[in-house]
Design a protein around this nucleic acid. Structure first.
Length: 507
DNA sequence: AAAAAAT
């Protein structure tokens, strides 16, 4: 049998692999590593969970042992579709690079430039990036790609889904064509094939395990639900309680970020040990949530499809689909978060009347009918307790709250990112969160009820003024105008806003 | 009916 020692990796790398407890490579590793070490281009067709990341990290470490990085000229570049995946690859370099002295820089959005600039300046051996932030650095002239020797494009099909292909093409053209390219994709749609023809030179093709099949160790169930969100939330709570025994940890997927936030708040209110993860949360909250979930400090993670693919969260016992995914492949990815490595897992999907057509395409894709849940949730002792949505009112229990107009009575609410980060902080206990009353709020002139929450930077700048409210109790709010209807007044003029800035140009 | 990513 092939072991890591047979693949041609350097002693330093082998030692780290051994320390991590691995001896036998996965098929993609056994297939890709020897070719990568011979500086060949590799086209790896592999799903998440196949050991794909190590199949490029390990040979890269070996190859990087010769040579040194120069300032602003990284030697290797890895492109990832999401920030979390990029961070995860960085962790792999830390783990397997423990015997090396390599500079690894992570260039992702949502965090400050300063750190990233410092690392670039110092000379990065490995650059791990999401396309947007990478190009941002490049355009600022902080980065030269002319010394990149190895380029890795990971999760190419997902980059395609996310509209990154033009960026990828642009980046590829900035890197010398004498480079070595390692290219990974779970599927090979025509656009991806075209990309590989354009940017790979006679690659070695390695293909492992087919997509679009769900692990046989996952028990899948459908659960009927009414279409109202509060009905779905009630059923979900009952379901979680019914499953409490075997539920070690769970991911709950929603189709929309808004629903992730709402469901998360609802679950916390009902005292479930829950966190949230979606792309509009600030990066700090995202990172904290994910870390806590991985460390089992959080039992339940409510997530958008950011978490559906690629993230290395081992051994999730349950997946709940709060919504039926619109694209059937997403179903496969979502439930692929459980039942990994031959373990058993359970996947429940809430289904409303309107979801039937999506369900049909899922069943067609996975080639089997999913059975309906036959447990009786209504007999559970704690079932049917009131949700936060139904309000008492005229005639009213078990009726959902009347739809509140968008900006009505919002002044005391915090933006979702704040709520998320507070919850994350409560779990983590290591992040300082400002008290609620410090939250600066601006009313815009044209829509007095519209409340705008400043960005972090704006808050920082606004704080001294907010600390002396008596000097300007309720200034100008009647004649201030906001730009772009974003709800933020011009910043930095103190009381002396030039008149032209107050003119409404949108007539 | 969506999400992801630069600001």
């Amino acid at each position: 049998m092939t072991t890591f020692a047979d693949l041609g990796l350097s002693p330093k790398v082998l030692d780290a692999v051994e320390a991590a407890g691995y001896t036998i490579p996965t098929p993609i590793q056994a297939g890709a590593i020897p070719h990568a070490l011979q500086r060949k281009d590799v086209l790896g067709i592999a799903q998440t969970g196949t050991g794909k990341t190590a199949s490029f990290v390990l040979p890269m470490l070996t190859l990087l042992e010769q040579g040194r990085a120069r300032a602003r000229m990284p030697r290797t570049l890895i492109l990832e579709p999401t920030r979390e995946l990029a961070a995860q690859v960085e962790e792999n370099f830390v783990k397997y690079g423990k015997n090396h002295r390599l500079n690894v820089a992570l260039l992702i959005g949502g965090v400050s430039f300063d750190d990233q600039l410092r690392k670039l300046e110092r000379g990065a051996d490995v650059l791990i990036a999401t396309p947007g932030r990478l190009l941002d650095h490049f355009e600022r002239g902080k980065l030269l790609l002319s010394a990149v020797d190895i380029l890795v494009i990971d999760e190419a099909d997902r980059m395609l889904d996310m509209g990154f292909i033009p960026d990828i093409e642009r980046i590829c053209k900035l890197i010398p064509f004498t480079r070595q390219t390692l290219f990974f994709s779970a599927t090979m749609p025509p656009e991806i094939t075209k990309l590989t023809e354009q940017f790979l030179h006679s690659p070695v093709r390695i293909e492992v395990a087919k997509a679009a099949t769900t692990a046989k160790t996952v028990e899948q169930k459908l659960v009927k639900s009414g279409k109202k969100d509060w009905e779905k939330r009630a059923i979900l709570r009952d379901l979680i309680r019914a499953e409490a025994d075997g539920l070690k940890n769970a991911i709950i997927f929603c189709n929309r970020k808004k629903d992730v936030s709402e469901l998360f708040r609802s679950l916390v209110k009902h005292e479930f040990d829950a966190g949230a993860l979606h792309g509009d949360m600030d990066q700090r909250a995202r990172t904290t949530m994910l870390a806590n979930f991985k460390d089992n400090k959080l039992k339940i993670l409510v997530a958008s499809d950011v978490a559906a693919r690629g993230l290395d969260i081992p051994d999730v016992s349950h997946v709940f689909n709060f919504d039926v995914p619109i694209h059937s492949e997403d179903y496969v990815h979502r439930i692929g978060r459980t039942g990994r490595a031959g373990r058993s897992g359970k996947a429940f999907t809430l289904v409303t009347q309107a979801d039937v057509k999506y369900l049909a395409s899922i069943e067609k894709l996975i080639g089997e009918d999913i059975v309906w849940y036959d447990g009786d949730l209504s007999t559970l002792p704690v079932s049917n307790e009131p949700d936060e949505a139904p309000r008492r009112g005229r005639g009213g229990r078990d009726k959902p709250a009347p739809k509140r107009r968008r900006n009505e009575g919002r002044e005391r609410e915090r933006p979702q990112s704040e709520i998320d980060i507070i919850a994350a902080a409560e779990k983590a206990k290591d992040i300082e969160v400002e008290p609620l009353d410090d939250q600066p709020v601006i009313r815009t002139a044209d829509k007095p009820n519209k409340v705008a929450i400043k960005t972090e930077n704006e808050q920082r700048r606004a704080r001294p003024a907010a600390a002396r409210p008596e000097q300007r109790p309720e200034p100008r709010r009647d004649h201030r105008r906001d730009r772009d209807d974003m709800g933020t007044a011009p910043i930095g003029f103190g009381d002396e806003i030039p008149a032209f800035m107050l003119i409404d140009t949108k007539i």
